[in-house]
């Protein structure tokens, strides 16, 4: 369905952004494996990015609602 396709596209874009952001933030010198501290950093970074996504999404929705009530 269109709905599912949108959701999948959305999830893919989120995963792409998460990988870029957290790889840059957590991997200074790529070694032969992910160290446990790198893994911990990636997990935290992606959790925080998801939290941020939810906060931003809510704040954006509220702003649009406020603006559309004003007109």
């Amino acid at each position: 369905s269109v709905q599912q396709q949108l959701a999948i596209q959305n999830a893919q874009e989120l995963l792409q952004k998460l990988s870029d952001k957290c790889f840059k933030a957590c991997i200074q010198k790529p070694g032969s494996t992910l160290s446990s501290s790198e893994q911990k950093c990636i997990s935290q970074c992606s959790d925080r990015y998801m939290d941020a996504w939810n906060i931003v999404s809510r704040a954006y929705a509220e702003r649009i609602k406020r603006e559309s009530n004003r007109h």
């Binding site: 995963l15 998460l18 957590c26 991997i27 790529p30 070694g31 992910l34 893994q39 992606s46 998801m50």
Partner: peptide, 18 residues
């Protein structure tokens, strides 16, 4: 070479977690 491998590890880790 490591950068490619670790980037893909990173993507898999994040995908599973998400």
């Amino acid at each position: 070479q490591n950068c490619v491998e670790r980037f893909l590890d990173c993507t898999m880790l994040i995908t599973n977690r998400t």
